[in-house]
Write a protein that binds this DNA or RNA. Structure first.
Length: 556
RNA sequence: UGAGCUAUGGUGUAACGGUAGCACUACAGAUUUUGGUUCUGUCUGUCUAGGUUCGAAUCCUAGUAGCUCAACCA
């Protein structure tokens, strides 16, 4: 009884409808248009629609809203299906609005017969100018009062291909003075002699969104048709058509689309980024697309968790991408294999260590009792991170400095004895001694050090390319800034480390496996560019709460 | 100058006439062989003005602000 259920407003509606007996079970649908790739905004909708029928009895369909053949393609159909599956959802039925073209045509004839639709010969410019404006009523088209017989004949001939593109439309006959502009005799059908990805050349007239979406919902007996806020004005037309057509009454509900800080979310803008080569493609790891996030190493669990935490409401919002990153870190912390990789090497010579390599053991994941261990080579010559050494450290510097001691993770405590520099004063090598009694797990030295560093043995190191991603934009909300959103692109959103040095266990890295490079962040193998070499994408950095002091950093 | 939608900390979201809560962020501390993780604590909020009520974030009225609508796109 003490269970807390923070239902969002749509779940509340569903719960009421179920409790009142209006429905025994519900039907929802995810209705993408196959003209682009899915992004984080779609993920919200997917989680909502599919989540509803996980929480309540019923099922969810996948339906492609493919009513505009000139922009749509099977390539997108395939990617959309892959993305939904990857996110972890299964649809009950796979439908296409184009499957209903025959029924839709009959619906149109029915409307004509009721005197509720007419064929208009006006050009699109004429239709636009007679439409009025939000503050002024529109005017009737001179074709508005054609006889039913003439409309029937004309519409049939439109279908038969007798007229060229754009020469005629079928319009609903509602009210040109209606305060809702969508009710001012909306276009229902237009002529397009275009090849459709599924129906081929069968049709040369295609229904508009408003004459396909709601009707498809109705045909599929969708109970709760959920869409975003910009469709609110369409609801009146949605209901009008269902009423006049006397078909199954699906109901439309609207929620606010999800925006994320430091990115853009409209298909149009994402397409621009792709076309103008600001990114590497739809699946560039910096893109907020599902495929981009997948390539970057985000997990479906993390994305679903994010959608849950962020919730659903009706007000405009821009969610903090930091929360998404939090969800990603939280999941990855539990599953990622720990490995050591040095990005910017500084050579360390352990002067009192033997020539032979010693193989040490390291746990794969301290957060997971069931995870295994791997062997790590330790030797006389090591690499540490250049930024982990400072000749003149600030206060509270836990890392290595002359005379200072640190632990090398999984290995020994070392003390820095000597710094070797080149002619221009850059540090080229650090000479250290190790404390033999300080081996990890067998430490009897009694020495306590503050810092623990990651490292890689030179002799057995494997090389890898590492790609470090940052936010795609410099400002939180590029779309709301002055001027073009592309002016705010972050030029440093990708930093490539051409040659990083990794411990040998990473030779066997597998696509889809997640790694935590100790003290560096979470990484995964790139799913495209890894053929003969290792390429890692940084999924997200580790949280870093250390604020460097005022001392000057090591140069070089 | 029409119609519609929305206003709760920095962000997102609860509270359904009865103690404004949760999460992220930020900050402080504890623990730590990752300056990670974990744990503890702190800061910050009901758009404005009236009204109804014993009591209002919630209901009413009027403002204000933001968003949407004039594609043969979805």
């Amino acid at each position: 009884m003490s269970e807390e259920k923070h239902l969002n407003f749509i779940e509340e509606i569903v719960e009421e409808d179920l409790e009142s007996g209006k429905y025994k079970s519900i039907v929802t649908r995810f209705p993408p248009e196959p003209n682009g790739y899915l992004h984080m905004g779609h993920a919200t909708s997917i989680c909502l629609n599919f989540g509803l029928t996980k929480k309540f009895p019923g099922y969810t369909n996948l339906r492609f809203d493919d009513t505009n053949p000139v922009t749509e393609d099977t390539e997108y159909v395939d990617s959309i299906k892959e993305d939904i599956k990857w996110l972890g959802f299964e649809w009950q039925n796979e439908h296409y609005a184009s499957d209903y073209f025959d029924e839709l045509y009959e619906y149109a004839v029915k409307l004509i017969n009721k005197g509720l639709a007419y064929v208009d010969d006006s050009t699109s410019e004429e239709i636009a100018s007679l439409k009025g404006t939000p503050t002024e009523p529109g005017k009737n088209s001179k074709y508005r009062d054609r006889s039913i017989a003439e409309n029937l004949d004309l519409f049939q001939r439109m279908k038969a291909g007798e007229f060229p593109d754009g020469s005629k439309t079928l319009r609903a006959r509602i009210d040109m003075a209606h305060p809702n502009m969508l009710m001012r005799d909306p276009v229902l059908y237009r002529i397009k002699h275009a090849h459709h990805h599924r129906t081929g050349d069968k049709w040369c007239i295609y229904p508009m969104y408003d004459f396909a979406h709601g009707q498809s919902d109705s045909i599929e007996k969708v109970t709760h048709s959920i869409c975003t806020l910009e469709f609110v004005p369409h609801r009146e037309l949605y209901n009008w058509l269902i009423e006049k057509l006397e078909i199954y009454p699906s109901h439309q509900y609207e929620f606010a689309r999800r925006n994320l800080t430091y990115t853009v979310m409209s298909k149009r803008k994402l397409l621009q980024l792709v076309n103008e080569k600001h990114v590497d493609g739809w699946d560039d790891p910096r893109m907020p697309t599902i495929s981009g996030m997948r390539r970057r190493g985000y997990t479906p669990e993390a994305i679903r968790d994010f959608c849950d935490r962020v919730g659903i409401a009706k007000r405009e919002n821009v969610s903090d991408v930091g929360l998404l990153e939090f969800c990603v870190r939280e999941h990855l912390n539990k599953i990622a294999l720990r490995r050591m990789v040095v990005f910017d090497p500084l050579k360390v010579i352990i002067t009192n260590f033997a020539e032979e390599t010693q193989w040490l053991e390291g746990e794969d994941n301290p957060e997971d009792e069931n995870s295994g261990t791997r062997k790590i080579p330790f030797g006389k010559e090591l690499y540490i991170e250049r930024e982990d050494f400072m000749e003149n450290p600030p206060k509270k510097y836990f890392r290595l400095f002359p005379g200072g001691m640190v632990r090398l993770k999984y290995a020994y405590i070392i003390r820095c004895d000597e710094v070797v520099k080149d002619d221009s004063g850059n540090v080229t090598e650090v000479h250290c001694t190790y404390i033999p009694e300080s081996r990890s797990g067998h430490d009897t030295s009694g020495i306590n050090v503050k810092g623990t560093l990651h490292w890689v043995e030179v002799k057995n190191a494997v090389t890898a390319e590492v790609r470090l991603y940052d936010r795609l934009f410099k400002v939180e909300d590029p779309s709301s800034e002055e001027g073009d959103f592309k002016e705010y692109i972050n030029d440093n959103s990708l930093h490539t480390v051409a040659t990083a040095f990794a411990e040998p266990a990473l030779k066997n890295a597998r696509i889809n496996e997640r790694y935590q490079f100790l003290r560096k962040g979470y990484f995964t193998l790139d799913n495209k560019d890894t053929y003969s070499r290792l390429v890692f994408n940084r999924t997200v950095s580790l949280k870093d709460s250390w604020k460097p002091g005022q001392a000057t950093p090591l140069k070089g």
